[in-house]
């Protein structure tokens, strides 16, 4: 075509949706890693890196789901509670002597039910997503409490040892299985998001739901898919948690929904919808983990860690706005 310039591969790479922000935060991540290595030499020891990755993995997995929902222009506050629910249901079933794999399957089914409920509330009955998922958040936490009569469970027992190894303690090629689970989920859901029709619809719905509807997109279905992915990811995190502790704890996953938002937002996912890529959430979650871990190694108290991380979240969103528009946002008309 005469009026189209040839692009270099680098330009093409940069043109990928949200790639610039991802590169920016990747540089930030690298700087953080170097800085913490200087502050405390044990930070970059092989053992710590392995632990660090395993620590980050749940935040990342739950971030995948939240990213899906954020791209549709909605939010899912229920996932923290779904983690708790998944943890309690799976552990309770196992202590009652149910085969761990069947327990896992049942847990996944229940959690996906929450995702479908969220999708129906938001997409079909048009509830504001904040309110709808705040409701299911409370309900799911209640379910987590009621499954074992308001007690944490006992130890899941020897029958569940394989389950615990698969989800947490085992290693493949020197990396903890938790990390491998995160990698597999990333590959699957990244493929779904960037290479399939359903994935493209997720972006379209978040960018302009009215135009999508008029283009023949089943918008309710796309939003529900996002919530189901979100609930499924939270469910996996719940299973990891019960495998790690060897028991069910009722307040597992507390606040995770917000950690997930933070990871996604640091990685360049727009809360207004239509923007963001999963690799960004990986980096975002890593920054989160490196800060937690690094500040801990550097001897910073919890209070300081919270203040720093909160500040980083705000700054990264502000940066995104400034990079995109050249000035702080006044009122976008989009």
């Amino acid at each position: 075509m005469e009026n189209r310039e040839k692009q270099s591969p680098w330009e093409e790479f940069l043109a990928i949706r949200g790639m610039r922000q991802v590169l920016t935060v990747t540089v930030a991540l690298a700087i953080l890693c170097v800085a913490f290595s200087f502050l405390s030499p044990s930070f970059h020891s092989g053992r710590n890196v392995g632990n660090l990755l395993r620590q980050v993995a749940p935040i990342f997995i739950i971030g995948i789901g939240q990213t899906y929902v954020l791209i549709t222009g909605n939010i899912d506050l229920s996932i923290g509670s779904v983690v708790g629910m998944s943890c309690m249901i799976s552990a309770t079933l196992m202590t009652k002597g149910v085969n761990p794999w069947i327990a896992m399957l049942l847990t996944i089914i229940v959690c996906i039910g929450v995702g479908i409920l969220n999708g129906a509330l938001v997409a079909k009955w048009k509830l504001p997503p904040f309110i709808a998922t705040m409701g299911t958040m409370t309900i799911a936490r209640g379910v987590a409490q009621i499954v074992n009569n308001n007690y944490n469970t006992d130890a899941v027992g020897d029958a569940a040892q394989t389950f615990r190894n698969v989800f947490y303690y085992g290693k493949i090629l020197g990396l903890y299985n938790t990390i491998w689970i995160a990698v597999v989920l990333f590959l699957v859901f990244d493929f779904l998001l960037s290479k399939t029709r359903s994935g493209r619809y997720i972006y379209a719905v978040g960018s302009n739901i009215e135009a999508s509807k008029l283009s023949g997109v089943n918008t309710a279905r796309s939003i529900t898919i996002a919530y189901v992915v979100s609930a499924f990811c939270a469910c996996v995190v719940g299973l990891i948690t019960s495998a790690a502790a060897g028991m069910g704890t009722m307040d597992a996953g507390n606040m995770y929904e917000l950690y997930a938002v933070a990871a996604a937002v640091i990685g360049g996912v727009s809360t207004l919808g239509g923007q963001g890529i999963l690799i960004g959430t990986v980096i975002g979650a890593s920054i989160w983990g490196v800060l937690q871990n690094g500040l801990q190694f550097a001897g910073a108290p919890v209070a300081i860690r919270n203040i720093v991380i909160g500040t980083i979240v705000v700054i990264s969103v502000l940066l995104d706005v400034v990079i995109r528009t050249g000035k702080p946002r006044k009122k976008t008309k989009e």
């Binding site: 290479k195 359903s198 619809y201 727009s270 239509g274 923007q275 989009e334």
Partner: peptide, 27 residues
């Protein structure tokens, strides 16, 4: 009419994914 924050390519393809995907929905 448009998803303002998406690319020209995304917008043109939006109503036509049925023509651009294989049976299992891969682009």
């Amino acid at each position: 009419g448009l998803c303002i924050r998406l690319t020209v390519q995304d917008n043109i393809a939006l109503p036509n994914w049925d023509l651009l995907c294989n049976k299992i929905g891969v682009v």
